[in-house]
Design a protein around this nucleic acid. Structure first.
Lengths: 211, 211
DNA sequence: GTAGGTTAGTGGTCAGACCACTTTTGTAAC
DNA sequence: GTTACAAAAGTGGTCTGACCACTAACCTAC
């Protein structure tokens, strides 16, 4: 590994892998070279390569399957969230920030999607509502995913998803199904005002903290 | 390492370290046991311990100093943010997404800050305007940093900063100083409507692409 | 052609060896 | 006793080689 001044090898490997992905135009699901091959090509030890890969795995960027190989994953920062949340979400200010930010994003996503929503999207909502269960863990997530898909801002969606997962670690959602019905109405009516109001209500008091 | 079913060793080490930190009541700055010691105590190989530590380092939870040791750090997810952004922004690099998202965040930051702004903040703005130079690369950044500081949502600020830095790689800002003056006026008047309008104008046409 | 075993490839893990660096220790000079 | 400096011990950084467990591809016998 050629070492730009003092960086650690594993950090260089990380960058190198990133370049490789970009250069080869790899997408989620595609296979990366094996650890041994990477080590040889990057002129680094396998352990260093592994440190980089492990870190990427924790970040949710790759997925490793023993006996098969290493694959690019669609971004699911599952591990990271789990680890990080235990460390950083103690501070209530962080939680406040998270809540506020998530709310902003959802509101804006709704406003963007509003103009794009088609009949099929409303049918999707209908299905969601019908199959709603009291104990569902992902209702809110699924609901807004429909909105994000319509809105076509993948960046905003990714940021939101990250926060959604974080907040799940300390909030147990208790859904008020009527609220979502009203929300859908507001979307149909393209009533920005109403959307703004309802967006904040998701976070007013219906969330109970996990002990 | 006692292996709960199938987890990987490094994940167990991670949890074990977390427990250790909690049990010992360690705070940022405190020293962790050495890699060799951890390996021995947890009955794992040093390389596995290292994989866990590297991951923690990337997440910004610890800091390692060669020759000295490993220390708990106050949470500064510097590396993570860097790595993640590179990947995420690379995937969804439609510039439209970036622009739209940044605009949303700035608008909301302004609305949040609006209620909090004090005299000293407006003086800060005044200084910025006075020292404005045509060729400044960071005027917009500095301007909004004042807003974010007042708003006290560090999470939103972090996200924004990321996008700001990234967009600099392909946008060369050309500032219309009058626009910022109007913006300040709108903030003084607490005129949400005006803020929304002006926020979008930053991105209307004044940005020139770098070839 | 199929079933079943063999083999090569891959990630998972460990042990041991150096290196570069920092801190501590020990010792000699003052 | 204090100081200065050299040696030693401790620590993270890295590489290598060796196994293990698992998967997929190949090949052979039927």
């Amino acid at each position: 590994m050629t070492m730009p001044s003092k960086s650690k090898v594993y950090e260089e490997v990380l960058k190198e892998i990133r370049r490789y992905i970009e250069f080869e135009g790899l997408s989620p699901g595609d296979k990366l070279p094996s650890e041994r091959e990477l080590a040889e090509q990057l002129n680094a030890g396998r352990s260093s390569v592994r440190e980089a890969l492990r870190a990427m795995e924790l970040l949710g960027l790759i997925e490793t399957r023993r006996g098969e190989g290493t694959f690019l994953s669609s971004y699911r920062p599952y591990h990271m969230v789990e680890i990080l949340s235990a460390f950083i979400l103690q501070e209530s200010k962080t939680r406040e920030n998270l809540k506020a930010t998530k709310q902003i994003i959802e509101k804006e996503a709704a406003k963007i999607a509003m103009e794009q929503l088609e009949t099929k999207d409303f049918e999707e909502f209908k299905k969601l509502i019908q199959s709603f269960e009291k104990g569902s863990e992902t209702f809110h997530y699924d609901f807004f995913t429909v909105l994000f898909e319509a809105g076509e801002n993948q960046l905003l969606q990714k940021i939101w998803r990250l926060m959604e997962e974080f907040s799940r670690t300390f909030h147990k959602p208790v859904y008020n199904i009527e609220l979502y019905k009203s929300y859908i109405e507001a979307l149909k009516e393209k009533n920005e005002q109403k959307i703004e109001e309802l967006s904040s209500q998701f976070y007013d008091e219906e969330n109970v903290e996990i002990s």
